[in-house]
């Protein structure tokens, strides 16, 4: 009975680790092949996060099954990767758009095209004052 249980655990760990590594390789393929910054960040952020989370879950199960060791560090690592990776992806996408990284030729829609995202455009859009300047005047 115990022998069968260990085999099942081994299979689960193997599937988790192999799936995670395959997701990592897939995201690297996307990083190489996709046409512009935004699609590349899409490939790099999402699938790498899921892949590393499943590898860490596999490692957690490994240490529970073979060493009877419940590792709080691995759980913390899973939570940390889950929280920080989307934040980092959002920040870098925003920085890419604001710094004017070009979109691919095949882009069909750019919702931010007419949105005021530089100071001069914002001045034209409002009454010539930026929000924080207006606040300062009120003070």
């Amino acid at each position: 009975m115990h022998e069968i249980g260990m085999t099942i655990v081994e299979w689960i760990i193997g599937l988790l680790v192999l799936g995670g590594a395959l997701l990592g390789a897939l995201s690297a393929f996307g990083l190489l092949r996709l046409p512009d910054v935004y699609t590349r960040s899409h490939a790099a952020t999402k699938s790498t996060t899921l892949g590393v989370m499943s590898i860490l879950l596999g490692a957690f199960l490994y240490f529970v099954a073979y060493d009877n060791y419940v590792s709080a560090k691995l759980l913390l690592g899973i939570v940390f990767v889950l929280i920080t990776a989307p934040v980092a992806g959002h920040l870098i996408g925003r920085a890419a758009y604001k710094s004017g990284a070009p979109l691919s030729d095949r882009t069909v829609q750019d919702d931010l095209k007419h949105a005021p995202h530089t100071d001069t455009q914002l001045r034209e859009h409002t009454d010539g004052q930026l929000p924080h300047e207006r606040e300062r005047q009120r003070e």
Binding site: G20, A21, G24, S27, A28, L31, V37, R40, S41, A44, T45, T48, T49, G51, V52, I55, L56, G58, A59, L74, G77, V81, A85, A88, G89, I92, G93, A95, A96, S99, A101, P102
Partner: peptide
């Protein structure tokens, strides 16, 4: 572009986490 490089650095960091595990 510069954001490309930063995204790649982030990916390498996350892959290194998996490698260490």
């Amino acid at each position: 572009s510069m954001p490309d490089r930063v995204i790649a650095l982030d990916t390498i960091g996350i892959c290194l986490i998996g490698l260490v595990a």
